[in-house]
């Protein structure tokens, strides 16, 4: 039995870390304004609303108006944060995001909760499994899903320095804390969480902790995994990816998202063009989720640490058979 590295570790939903970071940001940057569509207690923007009522605009259940109003605010030199659930931020207000925000490259940061299966028992209507793929396809967008509280704080603070919109994907459910309170973080630069020569596991968001658990399981069998926290899926850190893939020659991607158009696709695009490498994608296999417990859903849809480890074994096997021929 392998020890659970996250046993007893504090777990906080990244949406909570977002709400706290917004207040921190609001104190130092008077340009920051927040637009909300009637779920501030869930997205945690209520914290900003309490601290800075004048800079908080609750537009009601009207995400399309919210997105375009934030665009208007950004044209006046303000930095706007728009919060809702990922399904609505990426889909209900998608064309407003594309045409009114991304096209003129305005400083509107879209911070959205309920990423993938982290919405668990709310079911499909509230589980965004397409959002990263949709927003990644829009030019001028930066797309980030931090894995824990400290990296969420870093993402929020860094987003205001980016020229143009940043999509920040957040979790409903608590995530184990991986990073210390202060550490080196840059949007667009992957973080190597573990060194290994046998297989690369590239993970994003809530799948980072599953990747680390999988790496522990593999280590017990003598397999050493290189684990990358690819918190930014666009722009993808191709340097870190290619360096690791050149070393391990076997890649597994892990994301709480459809396997289409998200992290796995981004990694496959880069490897395919530059360094074809045996790979496997972990994610929802082009299916909707359903209601259930979070851990239960990860297992049911093939996203648990066990599935990640199994994919790693498989891809290593393919690497070996390729080198034999």
């Amino acid at each position: 039995m392998i020890a659970d590295r996250f046993a007893g570790v504090e777990r906080i939903p990244t949406r909570n870390a977002y709400g706290q970071a917004l207040v921190e940001l609001g104190r130092v940057d008077p340009r920051v304004v927040v637009f909300e569509a009637d779920i501030s207690k869930s997205t945690q923007t209520y914290r900003f609303a309490e601290a800075f009522p004048d800079r908080f605009f609750n537009v009601g259940v009207a995400e399309q108006n919210m997105m375009a109003a934030a665009a208007g605010a950004a044209t006046c030199g303000n930095i706007a944060f728009v919060s809702t659930y990922a399904v609505f931020g990426s889909m209900r207000a998608c064309e407003q995001l594309r045409t009114s925000v991304a096209y003129p490259k305005l400083n509107v940061n879209v911070a959205v909760s309920h990423a993938g299966l982290t919405a668990y028992d709310d079911g499909v209507t509230h589980q965004a499994v397409e959002d990263m793929g949709i927003v990644r396809t829009i030019p001028n967008m930066t797309v980030v899903q931090p894995c824990d509280g400290p990296s969420t704080r870093k993402t929020v603070l860094a987003a205001v320095e980016i020229d143009g919109p940043v999509y920040i994907r957040l979790t409903r459910i608590g995530m184990p804390t991986i990073y210390p309170a202060d550490f080196d973080f840059e949007i667009g630069r992957a973080i190597r969480l573990r060194e290994g020569k046998d297989v690369t596991i590239v993970a994003v968001g809530d799948m980072v902790c599953q990747a680390l658990l999988a790496a522990d399981e593999l280590a017990a069998e003598g397999i050493e995994a290189d684990v990358l926290d690819m918190h930014t899926i666009k722009p993808l850190d191709e340097t870190a990816l290619l360096e690791s893939a050149a070393k391990t020659r076997a890649v597994v991607t892990a994301e709480d998202h459809n396997i289409l158009n998200g992290l796995g696709s981004a990694v496959a695009e880069t490897l395919g063009e530059t360094l074809p490498t045996p790979m496997r994608r972990i994610g929802l296999r082009d299916t909707f989720g359903e209601s259930g417990g979070y851990e239960e859903l990860l297992k049911h849809f093939g996203l648990s640490a066990w599935h990640v480890a199994n994919a790693a074994r498989g891809v290593i096997e393919r690497k070996k058979s390729a080198s034999r021929t």
Partner: peptide, 21 residues
Amino acid sequence: DTTTGSLGQGLSIGLGMALMG
């Protein structure tokens, strides 16, 4: 002052500008 052409979005954009004013 704005990028427009997709109908229905301009009043929201103007609203955001008015709020910032």
